[in-house]
């Protein structure tokens, strides 16, 4: 079937079986290999993408569901320039990346969280990342990276005269 959708801000058209996995549409058809496969059954989150503003496992999503949708992948985050997104910066600064296989998914789950909750509690961060498994880091530095990403993004919003709570991270 012919499917039109928006991928990383650009209109895309693909002609694939409706039951193709979106993971394969991205990796094999569009050559966006930053989205990873770790289990193929919705458990590990390595294949996380943002679909219409919400994270989903692209390994469980059928291509037909993309019709008219807006998709963000890791490739869309830093754009074409070498500049990193503040979340990516924080992941590097805090040492939240070891093998890096879980990282694209972690970064996208973080982005989807911070887009909605600029000032998340520790609990909200845990919940938002509970579908992204990491075997290398033990997660502590990932938590720190999310907290510092939130701070960075709030600061940049304030600089842009937008409202931010500026309260820092709530504990709880």
């Amino acid at each position: 079937m012919v499917i039109h959708f928006t991928c990383n801000g650009k209109p895309v058209t693909v002609d694939v079986d409706g039951d193709m996995r979106v993971l394969d549409v991205l990796r094999d058809v569009l050559d966006l290999t930053g989205t990873k496969e770790g289990c193929g059954e919705g458990e590990c989150g390595a294949c996380t993408i943002i679909l219409n503003g919400k994270t989903v496992n692209s390994c469980l999503l059928y291509a037909g569901k993309l019709q008219g949708a807006v998709v963000e992948t890791i490739e869309g985050l830093s754009g074409d320039s070498a500049g990193l997104h503040p979340i990516q910066e924080s992941f590097l600064e805090e040492g939240a990346v070891q093998c890096g296989f879980c990282t694209p998914g972690m970064v996208l789950s973080t982005k989807a969280l911070l887009d909605r909750h600029p000032d998340p509690s520790i609990k909200e961060i845990e919940t938002a990342l509970s579908g992204n498994f990491c075997r290398c880091t033990g997660y502590g530095k990932i938590m720190k990276a999310v907290v510092s990403s939130a701070e960075k993004l709030r600061d940049s919003r304030e600089d842009g005269h937008q409202s931010g709570t500026g309260l820092g991270v709530k504990r709880g």
Partner: peptide
């Protein structure tokens, strides 16, 4: 910082 970190956080590293 991790010297090969940028390619990993951007998804550009080739596994």
């Amino acid at each position: 910082r991790k010297v090969d970190g940028i390619e990993l956080v951007t998804g550009k590293a080739k596994f």
